[in-house]
């Protein structure tokens, strides 16, 4: 088990390195393929009509005149040891996990990101709880009475949930319940400040996001349960004389849930890397919004930082899921 986790962690680190290298290469190469020179790139970071000398200085300071692998090396070194950026008049020190420095709004990427993590995490966690519970419950009930009225109704709702876009349901809910009937707040309040307010302001975002996901999870659970309830071991459980509820929960659901946990981990990991649409619909200043900023501003350090953070969450979620899976299913051998 320990050896397995170690091996997986090692693999995760390698994977993150590869992701960062690829992202780095893409953002380094793309502008060049598009025909931009290092000068033009450097120019973005200075005001209008810069002098040749200014450009050269910025270019040098940012290392844009160096080969890509040297730039990448500096980036990695920055994460481990921190970095100092010489901006001509001033020098900026960026502390140890230095994921770069945005010259557009003159801020280090890492503190900016960490300040946004709680927002995204609040959104993701709340929605996850909602969709997991509702999705699984609906899925199980549908599976136990396939083709019943209830089954058809919920599967219909689920289909609608999947097909209606987030910016539609989200915007609609927001208009209805914050403007028409103002029962929910519109500005994010941190959990530590006021938990009730925190939940109140996030509730609509949770629901909109959960509607989408619980639809998927209900369908997953339903098909998983339908399959499991046809397994031989379910028949054995019934042959023992167990009451149906025990058969369903202890023998059926336990097996049906395992693959769902896998998907759940991945989804949660993905969401932690930024729920782009939800965040913008509900004006939440989370990771997703930060990513959008980076892209619209063509701000390489931001994009790189968010990409790495998202990758990190996905990789960690994957690792956790695999370990959980092994714990749930004794047939999975970790060694």
């Amino acid at each position: 088990m320990i050896s397995y986790i170690l091996r997986r962690t090692f693999a995760a680190v390698i994977l993150l390195l590869v992701v960062s290298a690829v992202t780095f290469a893409i953002f380094f190469l793309l502008p060049r393929i598009a025909g931009q020179t290092a000068d033009q790139l450097a120019q973005q970071y200075i005001g209008k009509s810069p002098s040749k000398a200014d450009i050269a200085a910025v270019k040098h300071n940012l290392g844009l005149d160096q080969p890509v692998y040297v730039q990448y090396w500096h980036f990695i070194k920055g994460i481990v040891a921190g970095a100092t950026y010489d901006l001509g008049p001033t020098t900026v020190h960026c502390d140890a996990p230095c994921f770069g420095y945005s010259f557009k709004n003159h801020q280090a990427v890492w503190p900016e990101m960490t300040s946004r993590i709680p927002v995204t995490a609040s959104l993701a966690a709340g929605a996850a709880v909602l969709w997991l519970i509702s999705g699984v419950v609906v899925g199980v009930i549908s599976a136990l009475k396939p083709r019943s009225f209830f089954d058809r109704l919920f599967m219909g709702v689920a289909l609608a949930g999947v097909s209606l876009p987030m910016f539609f349901t989200g915007k609609l809910a927001q208009l209805l319940f914050t403007v028409q009937i103002p029962i929910f707040g519109r500005t994010y309040v941190p959990l530590t400040e006021n938990p009730a307010q925190w939940a109140n302001t996030l509730f609509l975002a949770w629901c909109s996001l959960a509607l989408l996901y619980s639809a998927i999870y209900a369908r997953l659970t339903r098909s998983g349960m339908l399959e499991t309830m046809n397994e031989d071991f379910i028949r054995t459980a019934r042959a023992k004389g167990l009451v149906e509820r025990t058969v369903v929960v202890k023998h059926g659901l336990r097996s049906a849930l395992t693959p769902i946990v896998t998907v759940f981990g991945m989804d949660l990991g993905l969401l932690l890397g930024g729920a782009v649409i939800t965040e913008s619909v509900f004006s939440l200043h989370g990771i997703g919004e930060y990513a959008v900023q980076g892209i619209t501003d063509n701000d390489l350090p931001k994009i790189l930082g968010v990409t790495l953070l998202a990758a990190f969450f996905v990789v960690i979620a994957n690792l956790v899921v695999d370990v959980l899976y092994a714990a749930a299913d004794p047939r999975v051998r970790l060694s």
Partner: peptide, 23 residues
Amino acid sequence: VRKLRGREMAMIFQDPLSAMHPY
């Protein structure tokens, strides 16, 4: 019938691997 099942009448199945819960 459930109460009789497993106590007065019991059953064994063809494929013992799939008939037992793997977890």
